[in-house]
């Protein structure tokens, strides 16, 4: 479970995120939406443990910056940066070693490489990969650790249709296995049919937090909800 409580982040005098709280339960897919500058990236980076912040973030009841929390947390950043001189396979070996994965990770590596059509690219170094391939490697790295909580920042960008289909399938599998999934995106259509909870950030605060049943009950789409709450009072 991912639990964020009164998360506040200031850059100098600018309040980027203003005391937001939310949870993404096991087996739930949460979607973080918001216009540019709403505070999504700050929230994502805070959860990933890259920023200092006020408030608490816990991953399965563990402090997000603790080693134990990191062991069960997968992160796919918006900009997939890989090591220039490491091959695709070596990236995954590094992850297996860094996360001290149990025996059998090699089979999982092969499975992931095959799913994302990377088997024949496994000896290519990071520098020679296209943006889409970097994104696929980045996804493989996050999935390899078999996370309990996974956070994906614009995961579909750069992926080919087959990879998008596979990723969606994997996200549903993760959900079924009890993993808490948080996706941040601008492309509302890309998460259609996937989400359980939508969190709309606007000017550093939540403008709306709704479950799928609540949205369905009001007979509105996320897109309609998004524009309604972000354009109110503007």
């Amino acid at each position: 479970m991912l639990e964020v409580t009164t998360l506040t982040k200031k850059y100098g005098n600018v309040l980027a995120v203003d005391s937001i709280s939310f949870t993404v339960n096991p087996g739930e897919i949460g979607v973080l939406l918001g216009p540019n500058g709403a505070g999504k990236s700050t929230t994502i980076k805070s959860i990933a443990g890259l920023l200092r912040f006020k408030g608490t973030i816990s991953i399965c009841n563990l402090d997000n910056k603790s080693i134990d929390a990191k062991k069960i947390f997968g992160y796919v950043p918006e900009t997939p940066a890989l090591y220039d001189a490491l091959t695709v396979y070596e990236h995954l070996v590094f992850i297996a070693k860094a996360y001290n994965l149990d025996e059998g990770w090699q089979e999982e590596v092969d499975r992931l490489l095959s799913i994302f059509d990377l088997t024949d690219k496994q000896d290519k170094v990071g520098k020679d990969l296209s943006k889409g391939m970097c994104q696929k490697v980045s996804l493989c790295c996050a999935l390899l650790i078999n996370p309990k909580v996974i956070m994906l920042d614009e995961p579909m960008i750069g992926l080919d249709p087959k990879a998008i289909k596979e990723l969606k399938k994997i996200l549903i599998q993760l959900k079924e296995q009890g993993c808490a999934v948080l996706i941040s995106t601008h492309i509302i259509d890309s998460i259609e049919g996937l989400w359980d909870k939508v969190l709309i950030l606007h000017k550093g605060k939540f403008a709306a937090v709704r479950t799928r049943s609540e949205v369905d009950k009001n007979n509105e789409s996320i897109e309609q909800l998004f524009f309604k709450v972000t354009e109110e009072g503007e």
Partner: peptide, 15 residues
């Protein structure tokens, strides 16, 4: 560091 370190190493369970 480079961005790869931030994205991959910083978020891993390494001290």
């Amino acid at each position: 560091f480079r961005l790869a370190d931030v994205n991959i190493a910083f978020t891993s369970p390494i001290k």
